[in-house]
Amino acid sequence: MQNPTFEIKAMRASYGAKEVLKGIDINILSNSVTAIIGPSGCGKSTFIRSLNRINDLIPNFHASGDILYRGEDIYSGDVDVVDLRRRIGMVFQKPNPFPKSIYDNIAYVLRVHGFDMREMIDEIVEKSLRKAALWDEVKDNLKQNALTLSGGQQQRLCIARTLAIEPEVLLFDEPCSALDPISTAKVEELIHQLKQNYTIVIVTHNMQQAARVSDHSAFFLMGELIEFGKTQDIFTKPVDARTEAYITGRFG
């Protein structure tokens, strides 16, 4: 078995007095797609948003336990959060391109990390847009405001923006929940391709999507990890009765 990218033991997380993750143990494997499934309010978003510490932005959020990324505790005091987030990219539920041009959405990310040579930026902009399967649609309108793109295009731009700084991990927090079926198919296809080079974690409420894109699946319920295993096994022969009930659509 490969080395896990994330080794998580007894992870707890809370907003103020409300505990939403109650002791999670899970290993997330490199170069594979791990889907986090579960009904609303089960803590799956909190879980993924803790992996790049983006939840630090929420007042009163607190996480504890061992959350090791490549052997390093990401919640220890001496972690450089900015660098951590550069290495662990994230795509959000609602497409959130910056209100700038398509080009500047990616160039901004590069400039933040100290790239300032024009040709280099041009090159990476094109490369990232190609990787995100958006280049052909926007190559003639790079100066156009990103907010004029369709939802699906915006989401792929956000993926391109994330890929531009070559992260090691990609976190997807329900990336298709605001998209139409055709855009969803494009994003899923993209995840499929990206898997070869990245470790991917995807939160989804859509079980068909989990079945289609992931290698491993984790079923969360009320802040606990109920079952974790190969996606095929989870969907065909779940061990826990609650997993089976959720997958067959008896609640959720």
Partner: peptide
């Protein structure tokens, strides 16, 4: 808030988010 999250998620620091993303927006 999503705009800030997007900017922080690509490794911006607070100063960059404030003056290059929030302020122009």
């Amino acid at each position: 808030m999503g705009l800030r999250e997007g900017a922080y998620a690509v490794g911006s620091n607070r100063l960059q988010v404030s003056f290059r993303i929030v302020l122009p927006a």
